[in-house]
Amino acid sequence: ELREAFAKVDTDGNGYISFNELNDLFKAACLPLPGYRVREITENLMATGDLDQDGRISFDEFIKIFHGLKSTDVAKTFRKAINK
C-alpha cells in the first residue's frame, strides 16, 4: 500500500519525490486550501521528511513521514491528496 502511494506521488518514476511532485499532488487533489498553504505544507513535509537533505524524498524517508504523521492535519491532507 505504501509503495503504491509512493509511486502515485513519484510521477516521473525516478524513485524519489521532489518538492514539485508533492506540490503538484496537493494542487491536483483540489483541496480547499489557498496556494500559499499548499506551499507551506509541501515545505514542511520536505523539511521534516528529507532526512539526508538531498532535496528529494526516498521511499525509506516516505515511510518515516507517513508513519510519523498519524493524526495531524498535514497527514489528513496528505492522505486525501494521495487517495484522489
Rank of each mutant, 00 (worst) to 15 (best):
F62A: 11
F62Q: 00
D10L: 01
D24Y: 04
L22H: 00
F78C: 15
P32V: 04
S71P: 08
M46P: 04
F59M: 06
N20F: 03
G68L: 12
N44V: 07
T11A: 09
Y36M: 12
G13W: 00
A75E: 13
E21V: 02
R37H: 13
K8Y: 08
R37W: 06
E43M: 06
F62N: 00
R79L: 10
D50Y: 03
D54T: 11
R3S: 03
I57Y: 05
A75R: 11
E61C: 08
F26C: 09
T72D: 10
A75N: 12
S71M: 11
L45N: 04
F66C: 13
A5Q: 01
N44Q: 15
D73E: 13
G15S: 01
L69G: 05
A7S: 15
E40R: 04
F62K: 00
K27G: 03
D10G: 01
R3A: 05
N14Y: 02
K8F: 06
K64I: 03
F6V: 01
R39H: 08
L69F: 08
T48K: 11
F59H: 02
D54Y: 06
I41V: 10
G13V: 00
G49P: 05
E61L: 07
F6Y: 01
D52S: 13
K64G: 05
D50A: 11
M46D: 05
L69C: 08
H67F: 03
A75D: 14
R56H: 06
L22F: 02
D24P: 01
D54H: 12
G13T: 02
G68P: 05
G13E: 03
R56C: 09
L45P: 02
A81I: 08
N44W: 07
E61P: 00
L69N: 07
G15K: 01
N14H: 08
F78N: 15
I65L: 11
G15H: 01
K70A: 07
N14P: 00
T77C: 09
D12A: 11
F66P: 00
R39L: 05
N44Y: 10
I57M: 03
Y16M: 03
D52I: 05
E4R: 06
L22S: 00
P34Q: 06
T77G: 12
A29M: 14
F19S: 05
M46N: 09
F6T: 00
L33T: 07
L25H: 00
N23Y: 10
E21C: 04
I41R: 02
G35V: 10
S71T: 10
Y16D: 01
V38E: 05
G49D: 07
G35W: 07
A28W: 05
G35M: 12
L45C: 05
D12H: 10
